[in-house]
Design a protein around this nucleic acid. Structure first.
Lengths: 239, 239
DNA sequence: CGGACAATTTGCGCTGGCGCAAACTCGGGA
DNA sequence: TCCCGAGTTTGCGCCAGCGCAAATTGTCCG
């Protein structure tokens, strides 16, 4: 449950730097913001749940969100992570009435939400807003297809290496010892991103740590030698 | 290569029955059609190729199209099949400048094409056209994610069963002996849809044929007992 | 500061499905 | 009609990665 609060005065600076709102004038940004509702979600709470009626779409202002699909028999697959500034839960824009997955706060999050009913008007009045959203959707479709290709053609080791590299690129934070993934991520999470088991992920990370490619701890991974990880990821065993 | 022909008079009846053009008046349909170019593509020819500049988007008027992604080392994965009436190659609508996959005619095809430059105007003047397209995109994103989930959680046998059921539902033709997939599809094709090898697919189909669940021939599969195939597809081994 | 739980590591045995190879068969073109 | 090549079938051996189980290590909370 969010400890939902309608912030007294949403600051335009919250969103003005986001790609989604580029190409809009300050006045337009303020206006869009006025129709938004802001909420905080504590770590591990759900912003929305799979199969439930889609009432809103969202922008992540701060934090990290895990998008999870659960199978009828309870197995979970992580569809993607949402980073700061991204739009998500855009079921409305794609003509769906329910959310196809759940969105879970990986850390405490701040989120803006708009009622789906506002979507048509927003896109009509601010075409750039719709175009950017659809561009994001296009990117996600392509990324998802890339994942299908990886799962079809790569070994587990390559898939896990690819996943780590992607996380490091998208959400990595430079530290003294390397690029650290800046939200808590477990072996189980990585397994659910790559279609393997936490045991296999653990074995791989242990090996890589021995080789000095990464350092890792409890729910934490730091990539020390991205280059060697790339080599592993692209290893052409099965040509 | 298409033996491209600009048909003298495109008949509105070509498209009036398609969901994509529902909600448009006959006049509007005719007008949209006027800005289209029609081409025929013989079996196995490419409508467009992966990574090439996206110049147009398309509607399949007749035939079946295979959408294929090829990896740097030459392995192929079938992203989906396009059936009559579907829109495809909508890179423009999603802000991409190149096609993320190749589209290959699985049989002789008839295709309508519009220059990407027309997209903004078409969606502006015919909002229902854009909405339907984005709904299709949403469906495909969800289907692709479902495929990721299947590849993460199911055994090969279940995945192949699911793939056959999907093909039977989407493009099946009722015959005396069952539901026949009405375009040529090889064991290799099925393998590329499910992330396995043609050998494994062949073994599974042989077994199913022995069990009377399907009958199959060269580039041909007919589902005789869909119900038992569903049981195989949903088999909860790993619960 | 101590307990309890969650996350991680690691060993061991097994097997689903792949790689390789060879035989076979259908269908279409000369 | 015959031949050729693409598509298919099937046997065999192997191994990547899983399932199971148990030990170990952090971390948070009282």
């Amino acid at each position: 449950m969010p400890w939902g609060i309608r912030l007294a005065a949403l600051d335009r600076s919250l969103i003005s730097r986001l790609p989604l709102f580029q190409g809009l004038t300050p006045d337009e940004q303020s206006e869009i913001l006025r129709s938004a509702r802001s909420s905080r979600y504590p770590k591990d709470s759900a912003i929305f749940e799979q199969e439930t009626e889609a009432h809103s779409f969202f922008v992540l202002v701060a934090g990290h969100i895990r998008v999870v699909r659960t199978t009828p028999d309870g197995q979970q697959v992580i569809a993607r992570y949402i980073s700061e500034g991204e739009i998500f839960g855009v079921a409305a824009a794609l003509g769906r009435t329910t959310y196809p997955a759940s969105a879970i706060a990986a850390v405490d999050c701040v989120v803006l939400a708009w009622a789906n009913a506002l979507w048509p008007e927003l896109t009509r009045r601010f075409p750039a807003f719709g175009a950017t959203t659809y561009k994001t959707v296009g990117t996600r479709l392509q990324e998802t297809q890339t994942r299908v290709v990886e799962m079809s053609t790569e070994q587990v080791e390559q898939r896990v290496a690819h996943a780590l590299l992607r996380l490091a690129n998208q959400t990595g934070r430079k530290t003294a010892s390397g690029i650290e993934i800046d939200f808590p991520i477990s072996r189980q999470d990585i397994a659910e991103m790559t279609g393997t088991t936490l045991h296999t992920v653990s074995r791989l990370l242990s090996k890589w740590e021995d080789n000095g490619i990464i350092v890792s701890g409890r729910q934490k991974v730091t990539v020390k030698d991205a280059h060697r990880l790339v080599v592993l990821a692209e290893n052409r065993d099965k040509g």
